[in-house]
């Protein structure tokens, strides 16, 4: 059922059927507007992000033989969110003038993002394979929770034990990622 619906949307997008595209807008656009407006963006930003996400999706299907495994709505939401994160990161760097920003053409930007999104999905898939404890531990570690707090929260004997566990979890994740040919193929 879900697959059929995804298929209808994808085929509609690829053939440019206005009725289907409008349906996708009707069903999803307001959520993206809410998300972007509550994260320092405007309605116009949401228009741009939503359009880019749909256009990139057609390329993923055409060039990368991509299939949506979850719901179409869920997929679109995550992609728009990631696109917006990237845009915010770019704008922040531009304002702070932190580094010389490489100005790419639209085709390069779209292609880079698609590959980055694929890598993001791959990492999410591998994180899901870790133990619950590892997932929680890595989350805490990357949230910059001090080791002293990790010790307390996870009932470890010492900060050294906490460090060892983080090290092992990251090592497991790295091994899972490296073992997947998609990762090797994505990288140079």
């Amino acid at each position: 059922m879900q697959k059929d619906k995804n298929q209808i949307y994808l085929e509609g997008l690829l053939s440019g059927k206005e009725k289907i595209i409008l349906k996708i807008y009707e069903k999803n656009f307001s959520n993206i507007v809410s998300y972007i407006k509550s994260n320092n963006g405007t309605y116009e930003d949401a228009e741009e992000i939503f359009h880019t996400a749909l256009f990139q999706l057609t390329a993923r299907v055409k060039v990368r033989n991509f299939e949506i495994k979850s719901s179409f709505e869920g997929y679109l939401y995550v992609v728009c969110k990631n696109l917006w994160m990237k845009e915010l990161s770019f704008r922040k760097k531009r304002v702070r003038n932190e580094q010389i920003l490489e100005l790419n053409n639209k085709e390069t930007d779209n292609s880079n993002f698609i590959l980055e999104q694929e890598r993001w999905e791959l990492f999410e898939e591998k994180i899901a394979l870790l133990s619950e404890n590892c997932k929680k531990l890595l989350k805490a570690y990357f949230k910059k929770t001090p080791y002293s707090e990790i010790v307390e929260k996870f009932n470890y004997a010492s900060e050294n034990v906490a460090f060892q566990r983080v090290f092992k979890c990251k090592k497991s994740l790295a091994a899972l990622v490296k073992k997947d040919t998609r990762y090797t193929n994505l990288a140079k």
């Binding site: 930007d109 590959l115 994505l186 990288a187």
Partner: peptide, 14 residues
């Protein structure tokens, strides 16, 4: 910190 400029990809894919 989404930033594609710091990552490299397979040139053929790109």
């Amino acid at each position: 910190s989404w930033d594609t400029s710091t990552n490299s990809f397979n040139p053929k894919d790109k």
